[in-house]
Simulated scan of single mutants.
Amino acid sequence: MKVIVSGGGTGGHIYPALALIKEIKKREPDAEVLYIGTESGLESEIVRREKIPFEAIEITGFKRKLSVDNVKTVLRFLKGTYSSKKIMKKFKPDVVIGTGGYVCGPVVYAAAKLKIPTVIHEQNSVPGLTNKFLSRYVNKIALSFAESEEFFPKSKTVIIGNPRAQEVVETTTKQGGLAIGLKPDKRSVLIVGGSRGARPINEAFLEVLEKVKESPYQYVYVTGQIHYDKVMTEVERNGNPDNVIIKPFIHNMPDVLANVDLIVARAGATTLAEITALGLPSILIPSPYVTNNHQEKNARSLKDNGAAIVRIETEMNGQQLLDDVHDIFTPGKWEEMHKAAKELGKPEAASDFYRLLVELTQKAQ
């Protein structure tokens, strides 16, 4: 199988793509994969680091309001489509996959015009502009959330989940918790705001650091690189409790996820795919700074199924955080949420996605 994958802008579009590529290569070691992205996006660094062949095109996203920049974007789109067609005529892919971000627009559109089988993957419960645009041209639309079905032609949709979920389940080990100092006989809580951290989550936890000393639970507190020094100054002023492990960033996050009992986090699609695959109860504080407020909608889908507590930023404070942790660890509650999260999880998402690709390419032959 020869596959072109495109996705960029944020890790939420790139990491599911990488998880799918790993699954394809596991199933078909001789498969050829080419990734198309932009030089300015995160994908140019992350994908090349994985030694995956990479081609770049130039494209920018549309502004949601009327703007002269949108005229330039249309011209770049046409140029990006032309560049993508040239790449495809040379590479001759059997299928082209878009995992989100504006770079997918010209790439997947070009493939559809060349009559190459196409799939887009929508990670969020509310789709972005690019996937809405592409939905009328592609053969299949793979969804992570059932809630996003209403935005797409029903005949094309299939609920797959997020390939990253399977990667997390298959790569976790019980050594991850020990490596960062967790005690296996104690309930543990992971507090994390993403790779850059989240100021409201940090502030809430620091507010009750003194009370945390008395807690029967242990905490792994990931501040984010940009907040670490400021947080440590505050911690040194108040004294660092013995039951709190503070890190600026964790590289082996799947291993840590597999060794904690509860997570406090934002509600990005990839995070939710990981925690549901592992059956991890959560306290979710959605970022209000994302398109279409999609993080809150992602989070509500877990809450509505009993797998999470959702707190918007204006509701979050230190005491509320401690109360929610205590509530989840009351007898029977954690077990209920664990079961609910597991039922939402798609731990075979990458395998199911691969089977969808095989089905599409066989039909095209």
Rank of each mutant, 00 (worst) to 15 (best):
D255Y: 05
F329S: 01
G80T: 04
K79D: 10
N70P: 05
E296N: 08
D304R: 12
F353C: 03
N305H: 15
L206W: 01
E296T: 06
Y217V: 05
A364D: 14
A258F: 07
Y109G: 00
T233Y: 11
R266C: 08
V231M: 07
T271G: 10
K339N: 13
E335K: 10
I312M: 11
E39P: 06
E32I: 08
T291G: 11
R136Y: 09
G181T: 11
E122C: 10
A273R: 09
P153M: 04
E274L: 01
I226W: 05
I46G: 04
K26G: 03
Q362E: 13
T276S: 14
G101K: 04
E203P: 08
E348M: 14
E55C: 12
N238E: 13
V158C: 04
V310S: 01
Y15G: 05
K247M: 02
D94I: 01
R49G: 14
P153V: 08
G98S: 07
T73H: 10
E207G: 05
Y354K: 09
I263S: 04
K90Y: 12
L262R: 00
R64M: 09
I283R: 09
G318E: 13
A142N: 10
E150K: 15
E214T: 04
G41L: 05
A165C: 01
R311Q: 11
K247C: 04
A299L: 03
L178C: 09
L42A: 14
Q175L: 13
Y109K: 05
E50H: 10
T271N: 10
N293G: 14
L18P: 00
L302T: 03
E234N: 01
E313K: 11
K65W: 06
S282Q: 05
V235K: 00
I263Q: 05
S215H: 04
K22R: 15
G37F: 07
I120D: 01
K247H: 04
L20C: 00
A307G: 11
T171H: 07
N202G: 03
H251P: 00
K156L: 11
L321N: 02
Y354S: 06
E147W: 00
P16D: 15
E147I: 09
G268F: 14
Q175E: 15
N298R: 10
L134W: 02
D242Q: 13
R164E: 15
S6F: 02
L129E: 04
E207Y: 00
K230P: 08
V192W: 02
L321D: 04
Y217Q: 05
V107N: 01
P347L: 09
H227S: 09
I263L: 06
V108G: 08
V358T: 08
G8W: 00
V108T: 03
V107S: 00
F329N: 03
Q362P: 06
